[in-house]
Design a protein around this nucleic acid. Sequence first.
DNA 1: CTCTTTATTGCATTTTCTGCAATAATCTCT
DNA 2: AGAGATTATTGCAGAAAATGCAATAAAGAG
Lengths: 298, 298
Amino acid sequence: MDSKDVRTFLAVAEELHFGRAAERLHMAQPPVSRTIRALEDELGVALFKRDTRNVQLTNAGQELVQPARDIMEAFRRATRIVQAAGRGETGLVRIAYAGASTQVMVGRLARESREALPGIVLELQSQNFAQPAMARVLTGEVDIALGRWDHIPAGVITRVLATEDLVLAVPAHHRLAGKTTCSITDFSEEHFITLAPHPGSVLGDRFRKLCHSGGFEPDVVQIAPDTWTAISLVSAGVGCSLTVSTVANNVNDPNVSFITVTDSTEPVELCMAWLENQENAAVETILNLSEEILPTAS
Amino acid sequence: MDSKDVRTFLAVAEELHFGRAAERLHMAQPPVSRTIRALEDELGVALFKRDTRNVQLTNAGQELVQPARDIMEAFRRATRIVQAAGRGETGLVRIAYAGASTQVMVGRLARESREALPGIVLELQSQNFAQPAMARVLTGEVDIALGRWDHIPAGVITRVLATEDLVLAVPAHHRLAGKTTCSITDFSEEHFITLAPHPGSVLGDRFRKLCHSGGFEPDVVQIAPDTWTAISLVSAGVGCSLTVSTVANNVNDPNVSFITVTDSTEPVELCMAWLENQENAAVETILNLSEEILPTAS
DNA sequence: CTCTTTATTGCATTTTCTGCAATAATCTCT
DNA sequence: AGAGATTATTGCAGAAAATGCAATAAAGAG
C-alpha cells in the first residue's frame, strides 16, 4: 500500500465513479482502475463492487475509508510539523549556563519562551563553570551558553547582556560597610572567600590581577562551591568576597554589604554565546526572543 | 511526500548512516541519498546535517521522526483493519425483520453478536411487512431479512428457523378456551381481529384459505397494526385472531387462550433470507453465528 | 599529510507508470 | 425484449521514474 494508492482509493470512494475520480486526480481512468485493482490484490480484499454502471464500496472498502483518511491526515500533519520546525516555531533548544546570576537570565528567557513560543522546548543545563559551557557550544552539545568569558573562540558569536562592575561583598559589621566605593588596596589585610579556582574563570582572573596590582597576596580562608554559598559565608562574617554588581542587585541580606571596586580592570561582561552558521531555526527564534527580553549592554 | 520517502527517512534517521539505511531497505546508497534530498527539497527544510563522516538529524528532522512513525503505523493500521473486514471480523450487517416474534430472534442474535463479535455492528430495521423486507434484500439495502414468505425470489437463500402451527387466540372466557385443538369450522360465527391485509402476508393468506375451505366469510371486526395489538384486543374480548405458535409461546396473558388449528394448510415457516453471492464477509460471520444460536427447523 | 570512509554525482538500464484506443459488460430507455 | 449509451477494463506504445554501478569528492582519523 502506497500513498498514491490511498489517494486514489479515497477519490474513488468519495466519487463512487472511476471517471470522476480520475478527473479529480488529474489523470486518465485506466491508471485509476489499475491502481485500485492492484491495491485489492495486495490486500487480498475487494474494496469496490463495480460493474459498468455502478460503483459501490464493499464492507471492507467501507472500513478502509477512515483509516485512509487518517493516513492522508498523518501526511499533512507531518508536513505541517516539519515545516513549523523549519520556520523555528517548534523544536528543542539546549541552553547551558554558568556563573553568578546567569540563571536569573535563563529563568526569564524560559518563562517568556513558554508563553510566547509554546512549540519550543528548552533544555536547561546548569554548569559549574563557564568554560565547559563554551566547550559544549563548540561541540554542538548545546545551542546557547550564558556565562562570562574573556576569550571567545572563533566561530562563536556573542552578545553582551550586561557589563558589570566588580564589587566586594563584606559583612555588615565590616569597618568599610556602608561605603559605596573602595580600592582593592583597602582590603590587603582581609580574609577572602573565593570560588574554586578554574581556568578561564573571569572572576578568579580579576581577583588575582587586582590583588597583584594592589601589591598583596590575598588571604583566602575559604573556597565556596558557588556564588550564593560565598555570599552566605560573607553574611556569616567569615570574610569578604569579590563578585559582580548583578549579584549585589539580587541579594537582599542585611548582613551583607556591597562596595564597588573602582580599580580599573578589563570589563566583566555577562554574555550569551552561540555558534555561527546556526541551522536550527528554533535557536534563531530563541535568540530573537532573547534580544527582545534580555537587556543588551551598550 | 510519499510513503517510500517516509520509509527511507526513518531508515536513515534510525541508522544515522546512509549505507546501513540502504542495506536495511535492500537497495543501494544512491537512491537513498536522492530520496532524502528530494524530500528535503520538497519540504524546504534540511532533515539531516551530513558530511562524509557524520550523519545527524537537524532539529526539523528530529521533529519529523514521530510523525513519520505515525504515518507508517497508520498504514499498518489501515491494512489490519481492511483485512479484518475481509475476514468478516468487522463491518456493518443490516438486518430487516417483519412479522410476529421475528424480533425475538433478532434480539437473541444481536445479544450474542455483541458478545462474540464486537467488531461487527448490526443495523436493525423493523419493517411493518415481510414483503418489503425481502425487497430490501434484493436491492441490497439490507443484508439479511427475517420473516415469513411463501414465495422466495431467485438468488435468495433462506434458512427455516421454525415451522409453526397456526393457532387461534381467543379470549379466556371463550366457549372453546381450554381446548388444545380445533378446526376453523368451529369459528365460522366468530368475530375476528386481523392484521392489515398486505400482499404476500402469509398469515393473511392462510386465514383467507382456511375460512374459504371452512365455507364461510369471516367477520373481521377490527384490523390491528401488529400482532401484539391484535393479542391485546383478543385479551380485551373484542374477538379471535389467527396467529402462530411462537406467539402463543411468548405471550403470558391469563385473559388469552391459544387453540391449535388442525386443518391442514401449507406450512408456515419463519425464515432467514439473504442474497447468494454474499461479498460482505461480516454477513457470512453473522450467518454462521445465527446457525449456532438460532434453531433450525428440521 | 596520507589514507580511509562515505555521501554524492553521472550515466545507462530496467522497471513502472501513464495515456490513447479498443473492448466488454451492464444498465436504461423505448 | 432489444437497442443504445455509458463506463470499467484491457492492450499496447511511449514516457517518466527509479535503480544500480562506477566514479568522484569531501572530510575525518591516524
